[in-house]
């Protein structure tokens, strides 16, 4: 029973290899520039004017009404999610008490430091630019929508009704403006309250922490995005726990770290497949090389058949 023992060894090896993967989670991820940009979004400063929604739609070439139409606060009746036609939305949450104001929460792609969508994309249509933005190239995209499965924030949307060239739709941090022209994203530029700050992520993180320190009564002591999903380019400040604002509680490591470790652990240098091929080769040789073995196998089989006949 050489073969069965070999098989068990092989399976055991596979278990050990996967166990090793879990314990030796090397921090992987894209190369990042120390001066990479981000946006600090202070919910307590936002007045829910929705000008960012307008500016975003205009910049992205998506359908939008006149700026006046965005004064309509009726949309706050329901909680909205970004979709293929609106890459950012504002949701309003009731005031904590009479002397507080309602909190307006801007929802869009957070531009993870180690994005699961980028790790998932089989053809690098989504990429993490070293300067911060998670960019999208529709020409490369095959439309598999694995990015949508992978995103822990459920952000990427899809143009399901386009039969010929549907795109994955999400905020790209105005990749043309920020990366090529050095200008801030459209939403930041239009914000009348400076609720949105654009700058280097490191400096924004310092600003955020300074604000919390200066006004501990105004803020919950948590910068959302500092560590969430391995850190994000967008950083949020709020007056209450973020899960009350429908921002998900996610691990402080990127979900991509585990899968990338599995992929690298098994396929680095084709070591896994080569070892398996060698093992199959050994079984092939040992089971077939000598006629004697085969004769024995035949005898064993006869015995097996007998046993099966009872």
């Amino acid at each position: 029973m050489v073969t069965r023992r070999d098989f068990i060894k092989c399976a055991g090896g596979a278990v050990a290899a996967l166990g090793g993967v879990e314990t030796a989670l090397a921090s992987t991820g894209p190369h990042l520039d120390p001066d990479r940009v981000g946006v600090l979004c202070d919910f307590t400063l936002c007045i829910g004017c929705r000008r960012c929604e307008f500016a975003c739609a205009e910049e992205a070439g998506l359908p939008h009404g006149e700026l006046r139409a965005y004064d309509d606060t009726g949309v706050f009746a329901a909680t909205r999610r970004p979709d293929a036609e609106s890459l950012t939305v504002i949701n309003r949450y009731p005031a904590l008490s009479a002397d507080h104001k309602p909190l307006d929460v801007k929802v869009n792609c957070l531009h993870c430091e180690h994005p699961a969508c980028v790790s998932a994309c089989p053809v690098t249509a989504l990429q993490k630019n070293a300067l911060g933005p998670v960019t999208y190239d529709p020409w490369r995209c095959i439309g598999c929508r694995y990015c949508m499965v992978a995103c822990p924030f459920q952000i990427p949307a899809y143009e399901y009704h386009d039969a010929t060239a549907p795109r994955v739709m999400k905020c790209t941090l105005c990749q043309d403006r920020t990366l090529e022209q050095g200008r801030p994203p459209a939403c930041v530029e239009i914000c009348p309250q400076e609720a949105l700050l654009y700058g280097s992520r490191a400096s924004l993180l310092r600003v955020a922490k300074a604000r919390i320190e200066a006004h501990p009564d105004r803020y919950v002591d948590h910068v959302y995005g500092e560590t969430e999903a391995g850190g994000t380019s967008w950083l949020y400040l709020a007056d209450r726990d973020f899960h009350q604002l429908d921002l998900p509680e996610v691990a402080s490591t990127s979900p991509a770290e585990v899968t990338e470790s599995i992929q690298h652990g098994i396929f680095k240098g084709f070591s896994g497949p080569l070892m398996l091929a060698a093992l199959v080769g050994v079984i092939l040789k040992s089971a077939g090389a000598c006629e004697k073995c085969e004769a024995e196998a035949a005898a064993r089989n006869e015995a097996g058949k007998e046993a099966d006949h009872e």
């Binding site: 790790s119 998932a120 994309c121 690098t124 990338e260 992929q263 690298h264 396929f267």
Partner: peptide, 13 residues
């Protein structure tokens, strides 16, 4: 230049 070796979907495909 296009394939992403980190992607399990690329490996499956």
């Amino acid at each position: 230049g296009l394939p992403n070796g980190n992607s399990a979907l690329f490996e499956v495909g």
